[in-house]
C-alpha cells in the first residue's frame, strides 16, 4: 500500500504535523513503545457556563440542555487588527455541544523504515496522535459573528450574527497525526 507523509502545516519552518494512513502491517512495525489510549466525551456548556450563574446581569440566565438562550454558550472574540481599541472583533459565539470519541492514542516513536523508503531517509522521532476511528458530534452549535467590542458588557456593544452552525453526526477518522520538529531550532 502506498504510504505518504503529507505535511499539513509547517509553522515558522520549525515544526510539522503529518497525516499518515497506516495499515495493520505498519502498526505492527511499532514495537517497544509506551503511550496512552484515550476514550470518552467532551461536553461544552451543557448547562451553561459560570457567567450564567453569578456573572454580570447581561449573562445571567437559566440554562439547561434544551435551552436556546444565546448567552448560555461559550464565547471567543478575536481582534485581528493592530489596535484593540479601534477595530472590530471576530466572534465565535454561543458554543455548545458534545464530542465523543474512542481510541485516540498518544505516543512517541521512531520512524526509520517503511513509507516506500522515505522512512529510512526520515529516520527521526515523532509524537504520534492516533486518530480515533469515530468522532461523534451531538448538538454541536456555534454562531459566527462580528462585534464592536470584546465583551457583551462593554459600553456601546453591538454584534452582528452572520450564521449559526449546527452539527450532529459522526466522522470517521483513520490514520495517525505525526508531529515532529524541523528547520532551525
Amino acid at each position: 500500500m502506498k504510504k505518504t507523509i503529507i505535511t499539513l502545516l509547517s509553522f515558522l519552518s520549525v515544526s510539522a504535523i503529518a497525516m499518515e494512513p497506516m495499515s495493520a502491517d505498519d502498526m505492527g512495525m511499532v514495537t517497544g513503545q509506551g503511550g496512552v489510549y484515550l476514550s470518552g466525551d467532551l461536553t461544552i456548556n451543557e448547562n451553561g457556563g459560570p457567567l450564567n450563574v453569578d456573572g454580570p446581569s447581561a449573562w445571567q440566565a437559566s440554562c439547561d440542555t434544551a435551552t436556546a438562550d444565546a448567552v448560555c454558550g461559550a464565547r471567543i472574540a478575536v481582534n485581528t487588527g493592530d489596535n484593540a481599541g479601534s477595530s472590530g472583533w471576530f466572534v465565535l459565539d454561543n458554543i455548545r455541544g458534545r464530542f465523543s470519541f474512542e481510541g485516540l492514542t498518544l505516543k512517541t516513536r521512531t520512524i526509520n523504515s517503511g513509507f516506500e523508503g522515505d522512512g529510512a531517509a526520515f529516520n527521526s522521532d515523532v509524537l504520534e496522535v492516533g486518530l480515533p476511528n469515530s468522532l461523534e458530534y451531538e448538538s454541536v452549535s456555534l454562531t459566527v459573528a462580528n462585534s464592536s467590542s470584546a465583551r457583551p458588557t462593554d459600553a456601546n456593544f453591538q454584534q452582528t450574527n452572520i450564521f449559526t452552525l449546527n452539527i450532529n453526526g459522526q466522522a470517521n477518522l483513520q490514520g495517525n497525526l505525526l508531529v515532529y520538529p524541523t528547520g532551525t531550532p
Binding site: 461559550a74 464565547r75 472574540a77 478575536v78 485581528t80
Partner: peptide, 23 residues
C-alpha cells in the same frame, strides 16, 4: 508585529469523561 491585538474567551464550561489506558 502584532498578529492579534486581543483574544477574549468567556463563559466556558467543558465537562469530560475520559479513560486513559497505558498501551
Amino acid at each position: 508585529q502584532t498578529v492579534f491585538s486581543g483574544i477574549v474567551m468567556q463563559n466556558m464550561d467543558i465537562t469530560t469523561n475520559l479513560t486513559a489506558t497505558p498501551i
